[in-house]
Design a protein around this nucleic acid. Sequence first.
DNA 1: ACAAAAGCTGACCAAAGTGTCAACTTTCGA
DNA 2: TCGAAAGTTGACACTTTGGTCAGCTTTTGT
Lengths: 214, 214
Amino acid sequence: MARAARDPEERIRERNMRLIIKAGIEIFARKGFDGTRIAEIAEASGLPKANVYYYFSSKEEIYRAIVAHLIASWDDALKYISPEREPAEAFRLYIRAKLDYTRKNIAESRLFASEIIQGARFLKKKDRDHMRQVTDAHVAVVEGWIAAGKLLPVDPRHLFIMLWASTQYYADFEPIAADGLKKARLKAEDYETAAITITETILKGILPAPESGS
Amino acid sequence: MARAARDPEERIRERNMRLIIKAGIEIFARKGFDGTRIAEIAEASGLPKANVYYYFSSKEEIYRAIVAHLIASWDDALKYISPEREPAEAFRLYIRAKLDYTRKNIAESRLFASEIIQGARFLKKKDRDHMRQVTDAHVAVVEGWIAAGKLLPVDPRHLFIMLWASTQYYADFEPIAADGLKKARLKAEDYETAAITITETILKGILPAPESGS
DNA sequence: ACAAAAGCTGACCAAAGTGTCAACTTTCGA
DNA sequence: TCGAAAGTTGACACTTTGGTCAGCTTTTGT
């Protein structure tokens, strides 16, 4: 078998696969699956094309590896919706964490967006089921808060869609977001203001409180 | 010159260009610019490839024609933010109109999203300037409402980004939105619930009104 | 030191892609 | 009716792309 005496840290293999994945994320995000040429990934990763094929047997394999890795890296940012917390604090933390993740992983966020727009062709059932379960758990928590009178009776699923949409927009559609904010590029402080605005709006709305004697 | 006696309704030319554009919107939306092959557009429009080239001299020309046409078709849906209106009613109408537009023009919406994710390479300065102006006008109206005490002091630009994001998500990321709602596909009624949830949340938030005697 | 495994890569190929063209048919105003 | 403009298209030229491969160099455990 192709099994033998070696493995000290897997240095070379690990490093090159990381380079390829990293370059792949950038380019797949910008060009989509069909629009990406592996020659471009090779160039961006500083490796000859044939060397890329030494590690991955096809374009699809690179893409799938990236998507799978991406889904796995999300759960961290989404652990704030938990029944013990007060809703206001939970949403505040969730929104900030998600904006933070997208800001620091812009290419990954866009790659995922691109994959979905193109029909979620390579999103495995396993991954979708996992995402659904996480959502279901969050929905249950929100329903509990509503039942306890801690939240107004809002549709939890649409509420989460609002949160996903609002927090991803800045990274995925940066050119439009930047235009909307009259800036050339988005900076950390813009994400900060976004976090505050989204949180405040979701929690308290934008209408002044009605006179307390209707 | 190639100018002569004809033009009765431009029937053939008009019809074929429309077929090509229509097919182009679908396929560009799904594959992005680089991922789209004109042979596929030809097939989808029922015309031979060479005939497509009779009307458009390149893939880029088809794409540009679509993007330009798309931007132009938007202003209608966005006319509700106007100072004479009461804010609550204005936002309600705006959100509903935008959701309605995206639902009825899913492919166009996705094509635009795709173009932005891919770096807004073919969005002309003129179009961006136009969008900026419309936004500036809306922002001014919201600032007026805030100054008049009709709205809480929210950042208007981030508020609009929230609205854009929330209203586009259902069309652009339908697979995820559908999963989130536990449905196989989104229907008109889902857009209806979305409109209500977004409007209510934006206007009043999700926290119960605090006791009126702090 | 050394052999076997791992890593590397220029050159190549078949398939697919964009865009062209010359010759043909259809349309239409006078 | 008839000629010119418009429309049509199969076949072709040229380029790019995904993927292969044989033979090379480097690494590594013993």
